[in-house]
């Protein structure tokens, strides 16, 4: 992780912290009011933390974790964002993804795109091209 990628990690870290903090407050204070929204907030927060860690770590495994978490976030913000606009009754309480992350300056919408761009440009150097991947996918004997 070098160059402008550090800034990406920093923004991810801040978002992870913000989502974690808010989710903590929601669950402690009023989980009963909107279990779905608040459970989703908590899940999103944990995924942001994992994404931040995965972006910092190097190696093929972490690279895949980074992809998986960032794609998950992007799907989340698109699906929940759209649902919150089309069917507001489903999410009466804010989640990090409601209205495409409006409560977080739309950072949840923009960040996964930047993250995917970053990952696509910085594939881990796979020394012998295909073999480690194939080996990793075979069940251990």
């Amino acid at each position: 992780m070098s160059g402008i990628g550090r800034v990406l990690v920093a923004v991810y870290g801040v978002l992870a912290l913000a989502a974690l903090g808010r989710s903590f407050v929601q669950i402690v204070q009023k989980f009963d009011e909107a279990p779905l929204a608040y459970a989703l907030s908590a899940l999103a927060a944990v995924v942001y933390v994992i994404a931040t860690v995965a972006l910092v770590r190097s190696g093929r495994g972490w690279y895949r974790v980074a992809w998986a978490t960032i794609v998950f976030e992007f799907t989340g913000v698109i699906v929940v964002g759209t649902l919150s606009v089309v069917l507001p009754g489903l999410f009466p309480h804010d989640t990090v993804w409601s209205w495409y992350g409006r409560g977080y300056l739309f950072i949840p919408l923009v960040l996964p795109v930047l993250g995917m761009w970053w990952l696509a440009k910085h594939r881990p150097d796979a020394a012998p091209a295909e073999s480690p991947l194939a080996a990793a996918e075979r069940p251990a004997s």
Partner: peptide
């Protein structure tokens, strides 16, 4: 946030750490 960003800035001294300080 500020201590985390400052720690990073001390570990990695380059322009992007300064940007990270700004983000924090």
């Amino acid at each position: 946030l500020p201590p985390a960003a400052a720690l990073w800035a001390l570990l990695e001294r380059n322009r992007w750490s300064t940007v990270v300080l700004g983000v924090a």
